[in-house]
Every structure is written in C-alpha cells, then in structure tokens.
C-alpha cells in the first residue's frame, strides 16, 4: 500500500494543468469544510443579533430610499427609466451590493482565517468557496425582498425572471474573480482594502445603479465601457422583463470571467504560503 507523498521545496510546481487539477481536487475534497465554515459564520452572525437578517439588506435599502426621496422631491431629476423608479433604484443598489460584497468576500474570508492559516494546513480553496456560499445565502435573502418590490409596484411576473438567478451568479463570479486577484496584495497592505472600498464608492456613479445611462456625452461612453454596467443592467432587465440590451457584453464579461476565475484561484493558491510567512504570529 502506497502512502501519499508530499514534497515541499522552494520551487513552485508551475505546470498549470497539474496545479489546477490539484486545486479543483482540493475544492472537491473540502466540500464539507467550506460548507461548515459558511454555516459557522452565518450562525454566529445571526445568533449575536436580534435584527439578524435585516442587516443583509439594510444598506442597499437605505441607499435606494435616499435616491427615491431625491427623485420624488425633485432635488435630482432622473431621466425616465421605463419602470417605476423605486424598483429601478432598489434593484440597482441591491445588485451593486451583491457585486461589492463578492469583491470583498475572498479577502474577508482569508483575513478571518488568518490565525488558522498560520497554524493548520487545510485546503485554502475552502475559504473562497465558503465565501461564495455566504454570498449565495445573503443574495437569496435580498432577491426575496426584490421580488416583493417588483410585485408591490405592479411590474408583475415575467418568464425572464427565472433567468434572474443566473445573472446574479454571473455577478458573484465577476466579483469573486476580481476579489481573488486583489486578495494577495490586500493581505500584505491594508491600503489595498481601503482603496477598493474608496474606489467602489466612485465607481457606483459611473454604473447605472440609481440612474440610467445618459443618451449622449462622455458619461455615456464611460458607463457603456464599464464592465459592471452589463451585469447590473442585464440582471435588472431580466428581473423586470425588459429586453436585455447589453446581453452581448454581459456574455463576453462572464465568458472572460470563467478562465480568469481559475487563474485567480491558482494565483491565490501559490500566494498563500508567501502570505502566511509574512503575516504569521
């Protein structure tokens, strides 16, 4: 009977195919671990709070209300969006919150596991996957609330609504991929995390989150180039049953994200020992 053999030396194994196979094998093997970590964090989060689940959507809800108020009071004049503005604003802020949460998720999971990372050898991919589980959990709560909005404001049911979860998955994939690329550097320097949240605050205004793309001007070009735009717009169009105008760009972004996600995963896998060395207590 052969025992499995591990070799540790300075050279990294750089045959990508083999590395990727190992990475995927680790994801498969650590299914229970990823699930357990997500379950632990969700349980702990809600056990220590009375409002619990409400916190998952309070931020997008508050942002949406601000814009609904600004619009209704006439402070800000927003061009017609084709659907009731509250639905437009809330779907926008909600999708935006899902994407930003996805971007932050790998770094948050890795940071949260810092103490274990420097002491126990476990499949690191489980951290990423547990982050995805948590995102799915939080997103599903938000989607339920969005459905309430959609029916309350009389937009009603469209068959395309059934495709909406796929668009959300696309958003999570997009965000997690970005987040994974940022994580190694972000673990070394706190600046990265701050820059990201700072930058995302600006980015929201060049993305059709609370207002539509203008008909002309520089803003139109920037917004149409912005890769966040097709994700928000396609998801919203599917939810309210409008024809998804940016579907092609959406598909391009998602198709690019799939290989990029695996590259990011490898980058993450290679980085972890280097990070542990620099951060361990």
């Amino acid at each position: 009977m052969e025992l499995e053999t591990k070799v540790y030396q300075k050279e990294n194994n750089l045959r990508l195919g083999k590395l990727l196979k190992e990475s995927l094998a680790d994801i498969g093997r650590s299914r229970f671990l990823s699930f357990q970590l997500a379950k632990r964090d969700i349980q702990a989060q809600y056990r220590q709070s009375y409002l619990g689940i409400i916190w998952a959507f309070v931020t997008p809800l508050a942002t949406a209300f601000i814009w609904i108020f600004l619009n209704n009071s006439g402070t800000v004049r927003i061009t017609d969006t084709g659907i009731p503005y509250p639905v437009y604003a809330f779907s926008g802020t909600l999708l935006w919150s899902i994407i930003t949460e996805s971007i932050n998720s790998p770094m948050a999971s890795t940071n949260g596991a810092k103490s274990i990372l420097s002491k126990i050898n476990f499949p690191k991919e489980a951290l990423v996957i547990s982050g995805v589980y948590k995102l799915l959990f939080n997103s599903s709560i938000k989607v339920v609330l969005l459905l309430v909005f959609i029916f309350f404001y009389g937009v009603g049911f469209h068959w395309s609504l059934l495709l909406f979860p796929i668009a959300i998955l696309g958003g999570i994939l997009f965000g997690t991929t970005l987040g994974l690329f940022i994580t190694p550097l972000g673990m070394l320097y706190k600046d990265i995390g701050r820059l990201i949240s700072f930058g995302l605050g600006f980015l929201m205004y060049v993305t059709p989150v609370v207002y539509a793309i203008p008909k002309s001007g520089i803003m139109k070009t920037v917004m149409e180039l912005n890769p966040f735009t097709p994700i928000i717009l396609t998801a919203r169009d599917l939810a309210v049953g409008m024809p998804p105008v940016h579907l092609t760009y959406f598909l391009i972004v998602i198709t690019c994200c799939v290989p990029l996600f695996f590259i990011a995963l490898l980058f993450y896998r290679i980085s972890i020992p280097i990070l542990v060395e620099r951060m361990s207590a």
Binding site: L3, E4, Y8, S115
Partner: peptide, 30 residues
C-alpha cells in the same frame, strides 16, 4: 506545509497531523 522553504527539501509520506494549535476554527459564540 504552511510555508515554503528557501532551500532544501522535505519529503513526507502519509497523513500528517499537527498539534500546533488546538481548537482551530472555534467560534466563541457557538
């Protein structure tokens, strides 16, 4: 296997158990 060496080589056969930290992953609330 937590950090990689800068020179030399480690070869380990079989399942490795480490008692470096006990109770890793405990969440105090649970």
């Amino acid at each position: 296997g937590l950090i990689n060496p800068d020179a030399g080589k480690v070869t380990i056969k079989g399942r490795v158990g480490a008692l470096i930290e006990l109770g890793a992953g405990f969440n105090p609330i649970l």
